[in-house]
Amino acid sequence: MSRTRIHNLAISLDGFATGEPQSLEAPFGHAGHRLHAWMMATRYWSPTGSTGVDDVFAQQFGPGIGAEIMGANKFGPPGWQDDADWKGWWGPNPPFHTPTFVLTHHARPPLEMEGGTTFHFLEASPAEALEVAREAAGGQDVRIGGGPTMARDFLAAGLVDHLHVVQVPIVLGRGVRLWDGLEALEEGYDVEAVSSPTGVTHLTFTRKAAS
């Protein structure tokens, strides 16, 4: 069976994966781009970027992925559901290049974009959404794209096989936290930490094999 993966999920030292308030002008609220500066400095992000440890982790985002699931707040700012012309943050050629399932309470016809991305708007539980995405993935892995509430829901449901979290040395103080309600999550995973010269720490959680 295909795996369920989360990649490049950046959090602050106090556990926030986004700031507040989210808006069209500030997709990550008061956090701005501080959570993702490490990634924007890599070759993965820019042809002139670095090729160090951060790039090695960032590059793992794409290979082997056949579908993505994301939350409504990743697809757009509050109120996007009322804008029939809203097609996401990413322009005509989004970076997913797979069927992408947006979990929302507002039905909308599928939205076919350039580069192989088609957005499907789905009202479903994590388990139901994963079943649909796995069928669309054709045997490849399914990526849980975030935001933090979506990632937390899938983790709480025991549906994530591989989790890559990037701890960034900033303190946000407010926003949406990743770890709330996930006490003892680590007991079901093999956990590794790799420190980068940029100051971030890459934490990978790989589900333990059933004994």
Results as ranks from 00 to 15, higher is better:
Phe28Asp: 00
Leu159Ile: 02
Pro148His: 03
Gly138Cys: 02
Gly91Gln: 12
Gly139Pro: 07
Asp161Pro: 03
Arg152Tyr: 00
Ile11Met: 11
Trp90Tyr: 14
Met113Trp: 13
Phe154Glu: 02
Thr98Cys: 15
Pro109Lys: 14
Asp55Leu: 04
Arg5Ser: 09
Arg5Lys: 14
Arg34His: 03
Gly173Arg: 04
His120Asn: 13
Gln81Ala: 13
Leu159Cys: 01
Gly139Glu: 05
Asp180Met: 01
Pro78Thr: 09
Ala137Met: 06
Gly29Ala: 00
Leu172Gln: 06
Gly116Lys: 14
Met40Trp: 15
Glu135Trp: 03
Leu122Ala: 11
Glu123Arg: 11
Leu122Thr: 12
Leu178Ala: 06
Gly175Ala: 00
Trp89Tyr: 12
Thr149Ile: 07
Ala137Asp: 08
Asp141Phe: 01
Ser12Phe: 06
Pro21Asn: 01
Gly199Phe: 10
Ala193Trp: 11
Gly158Asp: 06
Ala136Asn: 06
Val102Asp: 12
Ala127Thr: 09
Thr149Trp: 02
Leu159Asn: 02
Phe61Trp: 13
Arg177Met: 10
Phe28Asn: 02
Ala84Cys: 06
Gly175Leu: 04
Ala156Ile: 04
Arg152Ser: 05
Ser12Cys: 09
Val194Gly: 00
Gln81His: 12
Leu159Trp: 05
Thr118Leu: 13
Ala184Lys: 11
Gly79Trp: 10
Val176Glu: 06
Thr117Tyr: 13
Ile11Cys: 12
Thr104Arg: 10
Lys208Gly: 09
Pro63Phe: 05
Leu163Trp: 11
His164Val: 03
Ala151Asp: 07
Ser196Trp: 06
Phe75Leu: 07
Gly188Trp: 02
Phe75Asp: 02
His120Gly: 13
Leu203Cys: 10
Glu131Leu: 04
Pro110His: 15
Gly29Met: 01
Met1Tyr: 12
Arg177Gln: 11
Met40Leu: 15
Glu20Lys: 04
Gly139Leu: 06
Thr100Tyr: 12
Met39Asn: 03
Gly64Arg: 04
Trp179Lys: 11
Val53Gly: 08
His7Pro: 03
Asp141Cys: 01
Ser211Tyr: 13
Thr198Gly: 15
Trp38Ala: 05
Asp54Asn: 09
Ser50Thr: 15
Phe205Cys: 08
Ala129Lys: 09
Gly15Met: 04
Leu182Asn: 08
Glu20Gly: 01
Ser196Ile: 02
Pro148Tyr: 05
Gly49Val: 08
Ile69Val: 02
Thr100Leu: 14
Arg177Thr: 05
